[in-house]
Amino acid sequence: MSTASYDKKTQAAHHFDSLDQQHEAGKQGVWLFMATEIMMFGGLFVGYFLYRFKFHDMYIVGGDSLNWQLGALNTLVLLISSFTMAQAVTETMSGNNKKALKLIYVTVACAFVFLIVKYFEYSAKVHHGMFPGFDMWNPDMTYIMSQLRESSQGIITADPANLRLFFVLYFAMTGLHGIHILIGIGLMFWIIKRIKNDEFSPKYYTAVEGVGLYWHIVDIIWIFLFPLMYLI
């Protein structure tokens, strides 16, 4: 095998001329992967906007029945985790691997907080019959009414059937986002293991930076999901 062991911190893989070239290539690969992420979520955003155009009243009802305080909390948690991740990259680049390790632990903790909050949100929705899958769709109308703003009280009688579609998109988009968070946690543990093995140095930190980019894109998607789902 050509993956014979060599010191990754000082030597590039066999088909690269230098660590710099290897780093640049790796980073560009991650950026291309980010473009695919944008397009993949983009498809769901197309769905969101098309149905919003068709059933915009139901989007208001649906948005009101979500708990925006929890959404805002999660936004904050993700922003902080993005910050710790960015700072972890900074520390790795300056050679402070121990600090970087601590920061990544905080990032993972934030990711878990996000998922726990999401779990409570989801279970509340399922409890009130608002999960649009299998045969579980049986929304508790009095509950939804109680959640509505005054300005949208009149809408609900119009066409409650299409409310389902809002929740389809809600669960599809936040669900896919949640899966990305899970994958992100997996990647963090991979990074943690490699930091503990002392694999990174100011010259070789592509993996940390790549996972960082991934984590920020997950954050960006949430930046859009939060207002679209919870606020407007």
């Binding site: 197309v46 769905g47 098309l50 149905y51 068709k54 059933f55 649009p132 899958g133 299998f134 045969d135 059937a161 299409n162 389902r164 579609l165 389809v168 998109l169 669960f171 599809a172």
Partner: peptide, 19 residues
Amino acid sequence: FGIGIFDASMGGDPVLFQH
């Protein structure tokens, strides 16, 4: 899951699938 995003009877749009 039968989510109905492309199912006209549940408000979905089959043409969206084609897009």
